[in-house]
Design a protein around this nucleic acid. Structure first.
Length: 502
RNA sequence: GGCCCCAUCGACUAGUGGUUAGGUCACCACCCUUUCAAGGUGGCAGCACGGGUUCGAAUCCCGUUGGGGUCACCA
């Protein structure tokens, strides 16, 4: 065991999209493996044919890669331990099942679902714990079913499942890497079905076999698996295999502290992608939900590389963590503030190009779609947007003429003298050669001073006619970026449309 | 209900026997300011409860309460 290469896995079932809890589980597995210079692999658990969703496997892996979690081995990346899809490993499970049957650690069960349900109801009525009644446990294994009867059913081709024979009253113990020693009593667990009647294994059976065959050293998974630990441990024991180390992660919670679920908000990573969150922010956020650097660290923003450097299972907490979007919002802003402008530009340009196809605009297209122009918009707006797409939507006036003027602002700032002043100032701007922020500012102040007016009487109306709204970046810089032509046009048009009377 | 896990501000958390219980988000106030942000300063706010152990417990032990998970031919 010592010196062995660390191998971890994320094993989702392809039933839909990637859950944020799943993302965190995958991330911790990835961080731990990379920290230890080991391998991180993705295995697809599709043993429930009825729940299988088309394309879910590709989505899952694609989303993980979007997040920067790149597997060393997976159904699409290949590897030496394949196949990585359980439905392609059926013969393996069948062989191991035979071995369990031969060793009398498992047995055939021909009970129908109806029968099982009936039995369950009966036990419930009697106030007992619902548990399989071991009707088909063979005589030779301590049960009451004659071998001849079992033979007969088998020969008739009756449908059956294979159950593991859980020994009575033994204590099963293991040491969880996060929670410490945990003990279970075998008498509280049921004879788990290992092979279903459709010939597919159950999760419990397949995952134990695969985890062993794929040589994983550490199983890092959600806390919801804790109660099934004894079943898994018993299987390792039946096969004579040394179990890997286990770490059960605390759950991600809804605001009401129940297990994170739909109905109380978005749970799919794709939902957050669609809203405009970046992978950096999501990964950073989710990493901090249950893990922290400890000691005196006050760092909140981490790159993936830093996380890899600093991650350790010892620093993972035990209590569930509420998935609180407010901090995610804040993190997203931190990333937008520090991201190189050019990187943002290449991201938003397609959005803008698309908008330009559908909305009329008057500024020269080659100018407003140029990298230089967009970079200036980004730098003016980066401290004011929540998501990258807002560089286009929230700051649309950098690309489109204002369609309307914020009523409240007009009400407050558009006094009777404004149109006249604006016209006069526009003429001044028109005649000036230099349209830089500095010179506009100087011109405005010089214009207003002899009239004994405050700059604000002009500043606010200028912002309104130029952008249509009362908020935004530095006025002078905004005007400079818009350029003389657009600014003069917007002043003229603003006066026309808002009117002189107001 | 049985079994299992968990318990520090509203949220994420630091803390591993002696601290004015620290940080971040959110919230509030003030500053900066042409607006909105960003930023700065300050503030509000927490050890679930009860017993022990100890000179001394947020920290260790027991119990209570509370919350959660799980009890399928789903994962």
């Amino acid at each position: 065991m010592a010196g062995q290469r660390v191998r971890t896995r994320f094993a989702p079932s392809p039933t839909g999209y990637l859950h944020v809890g799943g993302l965190r589980t995958a991330l911790y597995n990835y961080l731990f493996a990379k920290r230890m210079n080991g391998d991180f692999v993705i295995r697809i658990e599709d043993t429930d044919q009825s729940r299988k969703v088309e394309d879910a496997e590709k989505n899952l892996i694609g989303t993980l890669e979007w997040a920067g979690i790149i597997p060393d081995e997976s159904p699409v990346h290949g590897g030496n331990y394949g196949p990585y899809v359980q439905s392609q490993r059926l013969s393996i499970y069948r062989d191991y099942c035979t071995r369990l049957l031969e060793d009398k650690n498992a047995y055939y069960c021909f009970s129908t679902s109806e029968e099982l349900e009936e039995n369950r109801q009966l036990q419930l009525k009697q106030g007992l714990q619902p548990k399989y009644n071991r009707k088909w446990l063979p005589e030779e294994m301590g049960g009451s079913m004659p071998g001849s009867e079992i033979r007969k059913m088998l020969d008739e081709g009756a449908p059956y499942v294979v159950r593991m024979k859980v020994p009575d009253y033994v204590s099963v113990w293991f040491e969880d890497l996060i929670r410490g020693p945990i003990e279970f009593d075998s008498s509280t667990i049921d004879d788990q079905v290992l092979m279903k009647s459709d010939g597919f294994p159950t999760y419990h059976f397949a995952s134990v076999i695969d985890d062993h065959l794929m040589e994983f050293t550490h199983i890092i998974r959600g806390e919801e698996w804790l109660p099934s630990m004894p079943k898994h441990l018993l299987l390792y024991e039946f096969f004579g295999w040394e179990p890997p180390k286990f770490a059960h992660l605390p759950l991600l919670l809804n605001p009401d502290r129940s297990k994170l679920s739909k109905r109380q908000g978005d749970v799919a990573v794709e939902d957050y992608m669609r809203k405009g969150f970046s992978s950096e922010a999501i990964v950073n956020f989710v990493a901090l939900l249950g893990w922290n650097e400890g000691e005196g660290s006050e760092q909140e923003v981490f790159t993936m590389d830093e996380l890899i450097q600093k991650f350790s299972l010892e620093r993972v907490g035990r209590a569930g963590a509420v998935f609180n979007v407010e901090k995610l919002n804040w993190l997203e802003k931190q990333y937008i503030k520090q991201r190189p402008a050019q990187q943002i530009v290449s991201k938003i340009k397609p959005l803008l190009l698309d908008e330009l196809k559908h909305k009329p605009f008057e500024m020269p297209e080659e100018r407003i779609t140029s990298d230089a122009y967009l970079a200036r918009v980004v730098d003016l707006m980066r401290e004011r947007v929540n998501y990258e797409h807002e560089f286009v939507t929230f700051s649309s006036y950098f690309f489109f003429e204002p369609e309307a003027y914020e009523a409240e602002a007009v009400e407050k700032r558009w006094t009777a003298e404004v149109p006249g002043l604006l016209e006069e100032f526009a003429a001044l701007l028109d005649s000036s050669e230099d349209f830089s922020a500095e010179s506009i500012e100087a011109a405005l102040k010089a214009f207003v001073a002899p009239k004994a007016l405050k700059p604000a009487v002009l500043i606010h109306p200028l912002r309104i006619v130029a952008s249509g709204v009362s908020f935004g970046p530095s006025l002078y810089h905004m005007l400079e970026v818009l350029g003389k032509e657009a600014v003069l046009r917007r002043i003229r048009r603003g006066i026309e449309r808002i009117g002189r009377g107001a």
